[in-house]
Design a protein around this nucleic acid. Structure first.
Lengths: 185, 185
DNA sequence: GTCTATAGCTAGATAGAC
DNA sequence: GTCTATCTAGCTATAGAC
């Protein structure tokens, strides 16, 4: 076996970057080849089902990163709610590159992408809701209020990313993260 | 001259439907031809610059509809603020088909679309902000608060559309419209 | 104004050398 | 594991008949 030119993590990172920027339909195999440095045939060797498997891998990889670096931080034992939330919001800022990068859910959720990934996207969003609901419960909000606040948080994040992109102004995203903090504490 | 098979309004409506569903990159001329009932060459006769001109026309047409049916309603002389807001929110619900349809800004704001339409999208969003700011001023909010509430309203609309689509649950969009009403009144 | 036909290109995908 | 070469299908776009 030849050595890998690019390891799995680097590969997924490049794929993620280009898919989140151009969307599923707007990303060609040539784009993916150029951005990873691997030829198309090599990409097919690593991902036999082509572009849809690459996007799927990006979804899985991102889901794991978010679980480890956001949800776990948000509900970590033995830390104050303030510090858990603050740290989680810092990780969210990192995930979206300060508002410059789009959410992978959005990038894959036009019709063609939805036909392939709707379950992943739906389940992924439910995990965000659950994580923030658990955070709400940990600060003794009622079940109902914890759910409501979690939903508003998800809407704030997604909405501020769309508006930041549209107005080309990342302060909108940053201000929204600050507001999320204020709404909880 | 032969008669038009499809008038401009019907044409734009079909183009809008398909572009908002599939996004700019995900919509092919064949899709546009199938959905409008006009052959590709006929579409080029009506829009000599092809797909980008069709999307541009959809943006312009939607912008006019929104100005006439949402912004004008929201700031109509001689009606109570409650009734203006309620009516505008009904029109917003109509624009997005109860949360089933995506926003044209979102459908055109992956990278390839942004390269072509960033100014339209940015200016369009600024008009939403201005319209809601003026509404806020009309109910005697401070300049600062009126701007802040307008931004949150835009974020709520865009965010709830993304989350509704992702979770395939339009009640999220509907509940957000109700909340917008509560936040103002 | 709409159509058929077609040009020229790029897409996704595969075969087989090294 | 990566590559070059290639296939077929689909893409955007145009020419020219009616």
């Amino acid at each position: 076996m030849r050595p890998q030119k690019v390891n799995d993590d680097e590969l997924i990172t490049s794929l993620s970057k280009i898919l989140r920027t151009h969307g599923y339909e707007g990303t060609s195999l040539k784009d993916l080849s150029d951005s990873t440095g691997l030829k198309k045939a090599s990409l097919y060797h690593r991902f036999p089902n082509g572009k849809k498997e690459m996007a799927q891998s990006v979804l899985n990889h991102t889901g794991k990163w978010v679980a480890d670096n956001i949800f776990n931080v948000l509900n970590k034992e033995g830390e104050t709610a303030e510090s858990r939330l603050k740290n989680a919001l810092l990780q969210i800022q990192k995930l979206y590159n300060g508002g410059l990068d789009s959410c992978i859910f959005r990038a894959l959720s036009m019709q063609n992408g939805m036909d392939l990934f709707s379950d992943n996207i739906s389940n992924g969003m439910k995990e965000w809701l659950e994580a923030f609901k658990n955070f709400g419960l940990s600060i003794h909000l009622s079940e109902h209020l914890a759910e409501e606040k979690a939903m508003q948080t998800l809407i704030d994040i997604q909405g501020s990313l769309v508006v930041s992109k549209g107005l080309q102004d990342t302060t909108i995203f940053e201000n929204t993260l600050k507001k999320i903090e204020d709404k909880y504490i």
